[in-house]
Design a protein around this nucleic acid. Structure first.
Lengths: 120, 120
DNA sequence: TTCATATGCTACCTCCTGGTTGCATTATAA
DNA sequence: TTATAATGCAACCAGGAGGTAGCATATGAA
């Protein structure tokens, strides 16, 4: 046993906001998925075949990406005839925006405190 | 050759904003890294050992996470004596916020157009 | 009915990621 | 000088992610 490799026992009181938003960021963290979201943000629901044309990857890969997005609620599907139409779901995107704002606010607050301490 | 498995040839004109922000979202898409960011947002720079205590993982794992964050510019390190202090870098977080806002704006715009078309 | 289209499902492959251990290196402190 | 603390570095491992191919199923149209 060596140089400080053993981790601490106690877990910090987990911030549920951050825990919930990590999967959303992970889903957003892929260029192909961001393109799919951008396409669906154009407004109208699109089928898998439509979303595949305009990509370099196969229909099956697109389906997987859509499922990843659906798992975190960024996207939703409706079955219409033999097609499966996908549409954007903005709720979870708002969740992600709130998380980033919380971080930014904490940072600004820390800077403000630091400035106060320096000027005191 | 089978049932619509062949992808299209032409690539869509790639939105550079989305391409650039995907790695940032990917870096944010891990609970451990979000916790590290939250810790560093408290204001003062922290050493690897400090960031490790309060986690269930090893110092080496924390180092890897910090490197992932540094690769996308979310965090920066300064060497001080035998310590290596890490601090938050808000610039790239703003980039991520802008990306989410662009998506949200496109979505709102599409909804508005849809509403206009319906009422016409 | 019969064919073509849109999709579902499964197996498979490769590479990356998160994590670990072990040992070397650097720098502070006694 | 000599421990000791903080970190760097490399090898290693298991599992998941992104991607593909092949075949089955369902539905619309002729």
């Amino acid at each position: 046993m060596g140089a400080g490799n053993a981790p601490s026992k106690k877990a910090a009181p987990t911030n549920s906001l951050l825990r919930n938003s990590a999967p959303i960021f992970a889903a957003l963290g892929d260029e192909t998925r961001l393109r799919l979201i951008a396409a669906l943000c154009a407004g109208r629901a699109m089928s898998i075949a439509q979303l595949t044309s305009g990509t370099e990857i196969t229909r099956q890969a697109v389906t997987k990406h859509l499922c990843v997005l659906a798992d975190v609620g960024l996207v939703r599907d409706i079955k219409v005839g033999r097609e499966r139409l996908w549409e954007f779901e903005p709720t979870q995107l708002e969740e992600a925006r709130r998380s980033l704002e919380v971080i930014a606010r904490q940072w600004d607050h820390a800077l403000h405190k630091l400035k106060m301490a320096v000027e005191r």
